[in-house]
Design a protein around this nucleic acid. Structure first.
Length: 752
RNA sequence: GCCCCGGUAGCCCAAUUGGCAGAGGCAACGGCCUCAAAAUCCGUACGGUGUGGGUUCGAGUCCCACCCGGGGCACCA
């Protein structure tokens, strides 16, 4: 409670503040990513590693602003732990684990002239070696700790750090820079005063923005200490092998250490008044002992920090879900009651947020809704009588809808609930009969890796919130995730390093030109930024949607990225035309299939195709399934007339990849109803095995002959048939076989 | 720098997981048809699997080192 007062003594505004401090959705004055080029703020996840917006590639600036946040950090542990329950690519799980960045450590308070500084460390065992404290340049206590003589240098350093781009700041190859504040902190372990520095290798966005420098046990601190002549006190006796690998004699004189020692080793110089680590030899024990001491002495405690920050949830745009929130005269937020929902976007013809010079960090957001003053001010009775309220004019980010659409799809017409619990259980409930730990979620979700820490993290958080609120039986939105590959295309860059329109590039001998000037080719994800997109509309127009879909499925494995070649599309177009002609009389447009029985050979091929296609679809090896269908189609072409007993299963098999044409063929074959509910063809096992097979015979690993044997012939029969073969006898030339290897159904190898 | 993928025919890709390197498509070439051409139909050729070593009767597949391409992360205390 503010000022330690009782709840009853707080006024309405203060009470709201207290509650909001615990809400999952809250408004906070917080450092946000302001993107003047887009005219809106964006979430951490939407900022690329070089500090630009993932959409539009504009510069992004850190500044404080009052914005809506979602307390996703409250779910950090579950978001990490439940990854183990999911059938997702390991790479995406790793991305999420890294993004959440859970690290188990300790927080410790250091006394300083300006009050206590809180530091975070994963190596609580090393405090006896802490010889300085480092604050991030943005740390709020920097000014208070800076003494007069040091002030100009500190101010200058902060200014420089602020102007350096993040990419420069985090460039590990540069020497670590920093500046002394003039103040000292008390190391509670050694009782010694240690200098407080400011350095930009410490990041405000992680932990507490303050660290203890332990140069003997941390490479960054080691480099920093060397740079500025700070003490390096050894607190572990590194093993001789460690020195050996670094061509140094074992010593506790850190002047002679080539780098910091990180690992298990006996502690030295680590005995204090009430905490003794000397004698312990492992980091785990050292940390455990220290944490115990911290908690007993009130100097700190074991804790966990995360790289993950709360989710910045408001955007200054028009197109987005409005917040069901109004503010009263005191500025307190109130939820709009259910019977007044939904809040709909007001009519306007001015949809764009105000955008600014992309580099103008000092501009302020102006949402399109802010301009609609008639809509912003409302008189409502939300429980306290009719009053005037001001509507929230921020809207939700584009991710809000994608967090739960798959749930709504299950029950789209329900106007009582966003999804009926029974419907939810049926479609996405946990399948505990299959797996006791099954978390539920859609069976298969095909999507791009680019959503690894955006949509896929937000949706999981959102889903867990709804689960906690009791609306869902599933704990996770997507059980199995499959990442499709990217369609790549040639992109061309001119001498200035700018991309040029790929469609207008000419081939010129070995190279390429654009507008007469040479350009360089590379391959990249198809899209606007590389100016190498091919419009799907153009493909629909030329070949139809079925052909395009089929082509994309046929050119390679679903998860493989591959270059786009427009001229290749014709192949699947021809396949579909040929399929059509195998079923339909081109003159009359009616069915041309025959009711005569298929030959043995045709039936065999049909059933083998069914088996292969089933297997291909099941394992998402669609390209292989399609190849088998093409093969069968080529066989049918040679027949002249297609038997109905082949045509019908064929149409059912192509339906998943060419739904429109398949449906049409199904009607032409005489069915009145859609094929959607027809069972998928099942292969007759009798056709899948041969009676007689041909086996290659190798002599010393080289194929020398072929023999024909019964499919179920035993090894002895096969061996004698192989050895009796003329070519084999000629090859071994009377020598005695040392060994004959028979791989049933595959081959024979005679070793001499 | 670290961590994932992936290198098979001119190109996109298969290869029953250690057993005959080739299913499918594009492109190329030849033929049928045509006055001619396109489309269709029929047919043909092409490489030994990025490089070097190893294991094995046998390696595209397994192991080691390296090269090339794509993606992710990168002072996280």
């Amino acid at each position: 409670m503010p000022g330690g007062r009782k709840w009853k003594k707080l006024d309405a505004v203060e009470r709201a503040e207290v509650i909001d401090g615990h809400r999952l959705a809250y408004v906070a004055e917080a450092p946000v990513n302001w993107c003047p080029g887009l005219g809106t703020v964006v979430a951490n996840e939407e900022v690329t590693t070089d500090g630009r917006s993932d959409r539009g590639n504009f510069p992004v600036f850190q500044r404080d602003m009052r914005q809506w946040m979602m307390r996703i950090t409250a779910y950090a542990d579950r978001l990490i732990d439940d990854l183990d329950l999911l059938e997702w690519p390991e790479s995406i799980k790793t991305m999420q684990r890294n993004w959440i960045g859970r690290s188990v450590g300790s927080r410790v308070f250091f006394e300083t002239p300006a009050g206590e500084i809180e530091v975070f460390t994963t190596r609580a065992d090393t405090f006896f070696g802490a010889t300085f404290v480092v604050l991030a340049p943005e740390h709020p206590m920097v000014a208070a700790l800076t003494t007069g003589p040091q002030a100009p240098g500190v101010v200058e350093y902060k200014r420089e750090a602020a102007s350096r781009k993040d990419t420069e700041r985090t460039d590990e190859t540069q020497a670590k820079s920093g500046v002394f504040t003039g103040s000292y902190a008390l190391n509670p372990f050694t009782g010694k005063e240690i200098p407080i520095w400011v350095a930009d290798y410490v990041l405000m966005g992680y932990g507490t923005g303050a660290i203890t420098g332990v140069p003997c046990g941390d490479q960054r601190d080691f480099e920093f200490a060397r740079n500025y002549g700070l003490d390096i006190v050894p607190i572990q006796q590194p093993p001789d092998e460690w020195f050996g690998a670094r061509r140094t004699r074992p010593t506790l004189d850190t002047e002679r250490w080539p780098e910091a020692f990180v690992g298990d080793a006996p502690y030295v110089n680590s005995n204090g008044r009430s905490l003794q680590l000397d004698g312990i030899a492992t980091v785990a024990e050292g940390i455990a002992a220290t944490n115990e001491w911290l908690e007993a002495s009130g100097r700190g405690e074991a804790t966990v920090t995360y790289r993950l920050r709360d989710w910045l949830f408001s955007r200054q745009r028009y197109w987005g879900e409005p917040f069901p929130i109004v503010f009263d005269a005191d500025g307190v937020a109130h939820a709009v009651p259910d019977d007044m929902l939904p809040i709909e976007l007001p009519e306007t013809d001015q949809f764009s947020p105000r955008t600014f010079d992309p580099d103008d960090a000092d501009s302020d957001p102006e949402s399109p809704l802010d301009r609609l003053t008639d809509w912003v001010t409302v008189r409502l009775d939300i429980g306290d009588g009719k009053q005037e309220y001001r509507r929230e004019t921020n809207v939700m980010p584009q991710w809000a809808g994608s967090c739960w659409y798959q749930l709504r799809y299950c029950d789209p017409d329900n106007d009582e609930a966003f999804i009926d619990p029974e419907v939810e259980r049926f479609w996405v409930g946990p399948q505990i009969t299959a797996h006791p730990d099954h978390p539920g979620g859609v069976d298969l979700y095909v999507g791009g890796v680019e959503h690894g820490v955006l949509h896929l993290l937000y949706a999981r958080f959102w889903h867990k919130v709804l689960y906690d609120l009791g609306y869902l039986s599933s704990k996770e939105p997507y059980y199995r995730l499959y990442n499709q590959g990217y369609i790549l295309a040639a992109a061309y860059m001119d001498a200035r390093g700018m991309y040029v329109d790929a469609a207008s590039v000419q081939r010129d001998g070995d190279g390429f030109t654009y507008d007469g000037s040479p350009v360089e080719r590379e391959f990249g994800k198809m899209g606007k930024s590389l100016k190498n997109a091919v419009s799907p509309e153009e493909m629909y127009e030329r070949y139809g949607a079925d052909t395009l879909r089929l082509h994309l499925m046929a050119t390679g494995p679903l998860d493989a990225s591959r270059p786009w070649e427009t001229r290749d599309v014709i192949g699947m177009y021809r396949f579909l035309q040929r399929l059509w002609r195998n079923v339909v009389d081109e003159d009359t447009g009616t069915s041309s299939v025959t009711d005569d029985p298929a030959t043995e050979a045709t039936r065999t091929q049909l059933h083998r195709t069914i088996a292969a296609v089933r297997d291909g679809y099941e394992h998402l090896r669609v390209n292989v399934a399609i190849a088998k269908l093409v093969e069968l189609n080529n066989h049918l072409t040679k027949l002249g007339a297609t038997p109905r007993e082949v045509a019908e299963p064929f149409v059912l098999m192509v339906a998943p990849v060419v739904p429109h044409i398949a449906e049409e063929l199904w009607r032409i074959l005489g069915h009145d109803d859609t094929l959607t509910h027809e069972p998928f063809p099942v292969a007759d096992a009798d056709f899948l095995v041969d009676d007689v097979i041909e086996l290659p015979v190798q002599v010393n690993g080289k194929v020398r002959a072929r023999i024909t044997v019964a499919a179920d012939a035993d090894d002895e029969t096969v061996t004698s048939a192989a050895l009796a073969d003329e070519k084999v006898m000629a090859t071994i030339d009377g020598a005695t076989p040392r060994k004959v290897i028979v791989v049933p159904g595959r081959m024979v190898n005679v070793v001499v």
